[in-house]
Amino acid sequence: MLQLKSMLNCIDNSGAAIVECVMVVGQKRHASIGDRIVVVVQKQRGAHAEGMSASSNATKVKRGDIRHAVVVRTRQNVTRRDGSNIKFDDNACVLINKAGDPIGTRINGIVGQELRTKKWSKILSMAPMQA
């Protein structure tokens, strides 16, 4: 249930750590897993946290940048077609460019399986696991 002012974790290696939702793209309701949102980068990931190899990626976005992102985890329950429900302990997203390709090259953390139905196959293939 992400909307204006919602704060999310960014789980890719684009360099953003915490982003704020400023718009939900293409719909007039709150965003869920697999929905596209526009975010402002609020906190950058420290270069030391990423390690030396990722330090070049860490400069991809800076604090105050406005980017598009895909929601990959929500605290709100997401109901599946077979009646099962999934809920995560945090809200998380992955930054993408306007064309829909991910900005980072790696995703650390689990992503929701709803991305498959929403056709985010690139993000799914980058993710270490999905639930």
Partner: peptide, 17 residues
């Protein structure tokens, strides 16, 4: 917990899936 993030799932027990 899956990769440092808590995950909760509801399952219907009579679900054929």
């Amino acid at each position: 917990h899956m990769g440092k993030v808590g995950v909760e799932m509801w399952y219907k027990i009579y679900n054929k899936n």
